Amino acid sequence: MSRKSNPKHPESRANTGPSHTGGGQLRIIAGEWRSRKLPVANVPGLRPTSDRVRETVFNWLTMMTPGARVLDVFSGTGALSMEALSRGASSAVLLEKSPVAATTLKSNLALLRAERARVVECDSLTWLNQPAETGFDLIFLDPPFRMNLLEPACQLLESNGYLNENSLIYIEAEKELNPLPTPEHWQLEKSKTAGQVSFSLWSRIKKQ
C-alpha cells in the first residue's frame, strides 16, 4: 500500500498502488455496521486503509473506542472514522478537502444513518488553525504522503486545544518518514509496518 498525492486536492487521503484509479468499495469490519460495503469516491488515488491494518488498529483501540469523540483530520474515504462509529464511538468530525470525496462521505454516512457524524469540507490545516470548541478523545492522522502535512497538523492539534489529557492519536505515514515529527511529549504506544506504510498509536505525557 503506497500513496500518491492528488495535485488538485492535496489533502485527500490517497492510499494507492500504481494501477489504482479511485472508486471501488470499503468494508466495515466489525460493530453495528459489520460487513457493510460502501462506495469509495472516484477520486484518483483514493482508497481506504486496508482491512488488515484497520483490524490491527482497532484491536489496539478496543477499550478506547466506545464513547470516544473522534476527529478524522484527513478523512478521505472515512474508513477509520466509520469503523470507530460502528464500534461505538459517540461522535465523529470528518475533515475533507475534495468536494467529490466529501460528497461521498456525506452520502455514505446517510446510508448508515450515522447521525453522530459530521463532514466538514475544508482545508484541514486551516480548520485546525482556530481554537477548538471541544477536545477529542481519538484522532486519526493519515495525511497524503510526502506533502509535509503531518508535522503542522500535530502542532495545531496541540496548540489549539483539540486534544484531551488522555487523547490517543493514530498516525499513518510513509515508512521512510522516521522518526515521525510528533511533539516531544507524545509517547509511542504501538507501531507496525505494512508494505511502504508505517502506522502507530500515540498518547500524551502530561507536561510538567
Rank of each mutant, 00 (worst) to 15 (best):
S90H: 03
E11L: 05
P183K: 03
N6S: 11
R36T: 14
G195I: 09
S5A: 15
S203I: 01
S98R: 04
T182M: 12
P179M: 11
F136E: 10
V120G: 06
S19N: 15
W60F: 02
K8C: 01
T193I: 12
P18N: 09
E83K: 03
S19Q: 10
I205G: 08
E165R: 15
G88Y: 05
A84G: 05
K175R: 15
T104L: 12
E189Y: 00
L149H: 04
R47K: 01
A79Q: 05
G76S: 07
E172M: 04
G23Q: 07
S2V: 01
L149M: 15
R52E: 01
L95F: 05
D142H: 11
P131S: 12
K206I: 14
L150Q: 13
R34Q: 14
W33K: 05
F136R: 10
S200D: 11
G22C: 08
P48Y: 00
E11Y: 04
G17H: 01
N164G: 14
A117W: 06
T104M: 13
E115M: 06
P44Y: 08
L149Q: 05
H20K: 13
E115G: 11
L85P: 01
D72N: 10
R113H: 15
L156T: 08
E121Q: 15
F199S: 03
R204D: 08
A84K: 00
N160G: 02
L188W: 03
L157I: 11
F199Q: 00
M63K: 13
L138D: 06
E165K: 07
E55M: 06
A92K: 10
T104N: 13
E96Q: 09
P18Q: 04
E83S: 00
R27H: 09
A110K: 15
P48C: 02
L112Q: 07
S124E: 08
V53N: 09
S81W: 02
K207P: 06
P152F: 12
S203F: 12
S200Q: 07
N164D: 14
T65L: 01
F140H: 10
E115V: 03
Y170G: 05
T126V: 13
G78L: 04
S75A: 15
L150V: 11
F145W: 14
P99D: 09
S35H: 12
F58M: 03
A132N: 09
A117S: 13
S75F: 03
K192P: 07
L138I: 06
R47A: 01
K37C: 13
L71Q: 06
A14W: 04
T104C: 14
F145R: 07
S198Q: 15
V40K: 02
D72S: 07
D72Y: 12
L177K: 10
G161A: 08
A194K: 08
T21F: 11
S90M: 03
L177C: 12
F140E: 13
S2P: 09
N129Q: 14
P10C: 02
L94C: 08
